[in-house]
Every structure is written in structure tokens, then in C-alpha cells.
Design a protein around this nucleic acid. Structure first.
Lengths: 213, 213
DNA sequence: GAGTGTGAAGGCATTCACAGCC
DNA sequence: GGCTGTGAATGCCTTCACACTC
């Protein structure tokens, strides 16, 4: 029977990857211990080892993990050794931010097409990425075999865009519009990101501590 | 003894709030049931009731919740009835997106100052918000009594900016730079947001299902 | 009958403790 | 001695079931 892997563990792998690269850049040693990684991220070492153990044995007892191997193993696990074809819908401020977001680039996640409503932007290239009309979503996606769609349009148009992406056959959708897209009956995996949640989390925290005192 | 409230519950309150406003806009009735809210968000009704019950009794048995009252109660819980003073550091694409993000506006979260390194932008007003030099972080924050700082600068400068914010006395920091800021010894609450995590989560999912077949 | 509120059960994630290996 | 890998223990969150109220 297949063991269930916590989603939180998968999310942390991404952080481990980033930290490993950071350490490598600073000329750190060939091996890295769970303790080192944990300290860097402010979590405990048991967590690191447990997370990695879900996927196999990567380390050497008494020594630690070979940094280089670990990087490629995590890349493999996260599906980052493959070049995914991603499109971005909406080139407002948020879309523009995402198209050039270094965090994506670092992971090798490259956007291969963008879609916009604004005629001014259509046909131009932004950051080397061709901009198409939103009416062309279906044809371009099929033509280019795009697998993942990112939604960065206003909330009002998000559902329409999601429908277009789904109809075009993308396998996954990442939604940044402040509206929760329902899980569709199609085989599309949808994830909603809410930029305001974390900020509200802080206001709640602050409101709460000031109430106590 | 105070009961512990799951952080996940607090995060969901924000979604309830948004849904309630959405329903109100569409002219929905005076009362709303946990089932209605749940369906709208694709979760189950027990969850909704449990979340709300942590904070008190808001509903009427047999009837549901008075939508208007629930909105103001949740606003109260999340600390959104107060106008927080927020500053934004970094006016690149991401910063520009955040400064005009409708999701924030909707919650009544308004940015009262922005900080930039680029001399071109300093002194100007963007979206009605005054832009200062990053060297002025300390003085402006103290002058305006700013309580929350948002970091949207490149990873390399994030720690420096965080130190400035901390020294200036903000109570909380929201970090969007792709680097994990350590929890400081000061009384500042720090939260890290990682825009790439959700995307990597999708690639992992896709890589995983294609491996199985 | 309809729908909330909540203790209890169940499921999932984190932490612990230690066996095993270099 | 140092450090990984992992069952077991703990703790947290979600789901369930039902008492209670309108």
C-alpha cells in the first residue's frame, strides 16, 4: 500500500531546494546535514529528515546528505527536471509581477505565452514572451501544448478564463484572482492563491494581542 | 483555559467574509446558512459552523446566520474594523501589483506609504500613495505610526529592509521576497509568503500522476 | 422541519526517541 | 561520535453525530 505524503512536506521540499542552492552559492561544503538545513529555515531537524524519508533514502548516516545529489533528487520529486509549458492570463500589475518573478525563474518555471484583453499589449513581447488576445486562449494552448495556466485577471473574469483554459485542455490551473474557483468536474487540478489571507492573518493577530492587554 | 483556535479557521473566515459580500451584492436573502456558505466555497458545512463556534454563537437555530451581523462580527474578529496603517517596501512589479490589489482594498487594508530605491519614483505619488526613499523608512514609519510593513523587494535586500522595519517599530511584517526571514527576537510578527510554492505544488502533482500511469 | 453549536471520533502532521550505519 | 531513517507518541484539525433551539 502506498504511503500518504503530507502536502506540507511537499511544500517544504521547495524551501529545502532554495536553501541548498543558497548554501551552494555561498561555497558551503559537499555535504549538508538535516540540522544545517533546519536551522537555516527555522524549523527542526526531525522534520527535514521525515520529509525526505517519505521519498526514499537520500542521506548517509554519520555524514549527512550530498548537497548536489539532494538538489537533483528534490528536483525530480517536484517535477522540476521537466520543462513545463505555462501560460499566464492577465498582464495587469500582478501578471507583470508574476511573469518576471525571480522565484519562478529559479525553479526553472518558464512562461511560454501570455494572454491579455488590452489591445495595446496584444502582439507585443513582454520579457521575451509573446502576448496574445484572450480570444486566442484555446488555439494557442493547443498549438503550443501548454499544460499549466496561471490566472491573474480581475475576479469578474476569472471564471470565464478558467473555463477557456479547461476547454483548451490544460492539466492544472493556478488562480491568483481573489475568488475561489470551484473544483471542476474535468480532470483539471485547480489551486487558489489568496494574497490577502496572510495580511489579514496579521491584522487578526495584532487585534487579538491588543485585546488581551 | 483559553481554547486554541486553528490558524486554518482564521484563514477561512476571510473567505466567508468575501463570500458573504458576494452574496449580498447578488441580492441574496437576509439570512445565510452554513450549508450555503460551504457550497459556495466547496467545503462542508460542519467546518463553517465549527469555525464560527470558536468565536461565539452567531447564528439562530432553525434559521441560519443574519448575513449583515455575520459580516460585522467576522470583521471584528479579523481586526478589520480598525484601519491599519500599512507601508509597502519595493515598487517593482510585485509591489505595484500589491499597492493596487483589489483583494486588499476590499478588506479595507490601505497602504499609507511606499518606499523605493529608484530615485525616479521617489517623491512621486503612485495610486495616491506617497513614495519615499528607503533611507527614510525609520523616520516615516515613526512619524506616521505605521504598524505593518510589506516587503516586496528583491531577495538580496529583504533582510536589510526587515531590519529597518523592525528598528522602526512595526508590529508585523509580511514578506513576499523569495527568502525565508527568520523570526526575530524582537516582538515583531513575521509571515513569509512564497508565490512559487503553489506552482511547484502543481508541477509535483502533474509529475506524480504521469509517473503512475 | 430546518439549521446551529459542540463534544467526541477520526485522520493527518509534527515531534520524539532510538535503532542502525558510517 | 555523528547523523540518518523510521515506528511510535503526541498534538492539531476536520468530520461526525446529535442535542438543542427556533
Amino acid at each position: 500500500m502506498m504511503k500518504r505524503i503530507p502536502e506540507a512536506s511537499i511544500n517544504r521540499l521547495n524551501l529545502y531546494l532554495r536553501t541548498l542552492k543558497e548554501l551552494a552559492k555561498n561555497g558551503e561544503g559537499v555535504t549538508v546535514s538535516s540540522k544545517q538545513l533546519a536551522e537555516e529555515l527555522g524549523i527542526n531537524s526531525h522534520q527535514v529528515r521525515k520529509d525526505l524519508s517519505y521519498f526514499g533514502r537520500f542521506g548517509q548516516r554519520g555524514i549527512g546528505y550530498r548537497a548536489k545529489d539532494l538538489v537533483s533528487d528534490i528536483n525530480e520529486i517536484l517535477g522540476l527536471n521537466k520543462k513545463w509549458k505555462i501560460c499566464l492570463c492577465g498582464l495587469g500589475n500582478l501578471g507583470s509581477a508574476l511573469i518576471s518573478y525571480k522565484g519562478f525563474r529559479k525553479e526553472g518555471l518558464n512562461v511560454v505565452a501570455a494572454f491579455e484583453k488590452d489591445k495595446e499589449k496584444i502582439g507585443r513581447k513582454i520579457n521575451g514572451i509573446e502576448v496574445f488576445s484572450v480570444d486566442k486562449i484555446k488555439t494557442v494552448i493547443k498549438e503550443k501544448n501548454i499544460e499549466i495556466g496561471i490566472i491573474a485577471v480581475p475576479a469578474e473574469s476569472a471564471q470565464w478564463v478558467a473555463n477557456q483554459l479547461t476547454a483548451a485542455g490544460v492539466k492544472a490551473i493556478l488562480n491568483f484572482a481573489p475568488i475561489k474557483l470551484p473544483f471542476s468536474k474535468e480532470k483539471v487540478k485547480i489551486r487558489n492563491v489568496d494574497l490577502s489571507i496572510e495580511l489579514v492573518n496579521l491584522t487578526q493577530f495584532l487585534a487579538n494581542i491588543s485585546k488581551k492587554s
